[in-house]
Design a protein around this nucleic acid. Structure first.
Lengths: 214, 214
DNA sequence: TAGTTTGTTAAACATGCGTTCAAGATCGGA
DNA sequence: TCCGATCTTGAACGCATGTTTAACAAACTA
């Protein structure tokens, strides 16, 4: 169930501690000594195993990205959403990874940028297939739609603390996730506007939510 | 056009410099000396005017939140989207504010949490009005829908660097924003699925984008 | 068993941090 | 003009940081 995350070497324990702390507080707010304490080792050992804090960060990025892309036999390589679904299904175990994954896109790393671009490419392909098969309506700007959908998907990760709080649970929970999932399904199925009344032209504002000027 | 942001007092210059740096790099990665240099003053003056770095952060939060909520005569108080639209319309001037606003939701501050909750409440009200007038379809879970729409709206802010890069511009641009706006309009008007074929049940994954398992 | 590599710690080091302080510059009101 | 208050600086202080080093323990290799 856990792949190689529970190789219980000290180096892995340090990396896991770093993933927890960096995910929770961001890289800049995470000190080598804090990681050491969290992992139950000395500060020197953190540097001995990873060379520097920067390299530790890169190691964490690589680990998370590998876990989220090259998962399990039987999965298409790069099937990120299947991996994330698996993580959601066992929150107590994988919550730190989900939090770190969200942090990846707001802490700006090259790893985060690369993953984002790959997700857009995948989304693009899937949408094109859906359009070809008739399951999905075409868009006037397919690339913008792909970017929009990836952005929306990732917002569940980057804003997870606010979502959880607003939905009443202190942390991520299966209940919150399925409520959000169902709301998203509604949205993606028929939008929110009734067929007759469609707003004229959308300004470049923060989205239709607050742009219901009729 | 600019409200009181260009009161050219030294204190305001320091605050603006802090908004730029904290927005760009996050609070933890922003030192008092860096703010001082950016503002063209000494480090001591930063503390003299604001008391401490923490209080400077609070002052920046307060300033941005005031600017984004209590704007202009003729606006309904708390009309955040109108303010943000105005900011978008003059990017060279307001880009730092937009970046800071995005940072507000990922750096977790009480100010960010409060604003998020207020946005959800506003979204809730507007959706209810739309449903009552027949312009918007009802949802099985109105609260979850409100949270979802706010989350999606804010993702344009929190992930703006990725959006810009993926759409080909190095920074935020009016072109990128209107492309995203139009894609969102499409989505909110009719979703992405064709009326006949609707996916069965949505898992709690990262969203329908990658969940097109047919 | 002896020797070499690896794992690990505690102390030390230089640097940069937030903040304080003493001193001067600048200004408005008497 | 003088004075008190405010603005501003540069140096200093104590502290936490990332990293280095020396020493030692453990484990493999011969």
């Amino acid at each position: 169930m856990r792949s190689r995350s529970d190789d219980s070497t000290t180096k892995a324990r340090i990396r896991d501690a770093a993933i927890r702390l960096i995910g929770q507080n961001g890289f800049a707010a995470t000190s080598a000594r804090a990681v050491a304490t969290e992992a139950g080792v000395s500060a020197g050992l953190v540097i001995h195993h990873f060379g520097s804090m920067r390299e530790l960060k890169v190691a964490c990025d690589d680990f998370i990205i590998t876990e989220v892309t090259h998962r399990k036999v039987g999965m298409g390589e790069g099937d990120v959403s299947a991996a994330v679904s698996e993580w959601y299904a066992d929150l107590p175990t994988f919550e730190p990874w989900l939090i770190y994954l969200g942090r990846l896109f707001t802490d700006d790393s090259v790893a985060g940028a690369d993953l984002f671009d790959r997700l857009v490419a995948m989304s693009h392909t899937m949408l094109a297939e859906g359009v070809a098969s008739g399951a999905i309506t075409p868009s006037a700007d397919e690339h913008a739609r792909a970017v929009l959908l990836v952005t929306h998907s990732l917002s569940t990760l980057t804003l997870q603390s606010h979502i959880a709080r607003s939905l009443g649970s202190s942390q991520l929970s299966l209940d919150s996730l399925s409520r959000m999932g169902n709301a998203a399904l509604e949205l993606y199925t028929h939008g929110i506007y009734t067929p007759s009344t469609t707003p004229s032209q959308e300004g470049p504002g923060s989205g239709p939510t607050h742009d219901l000027r009729h």
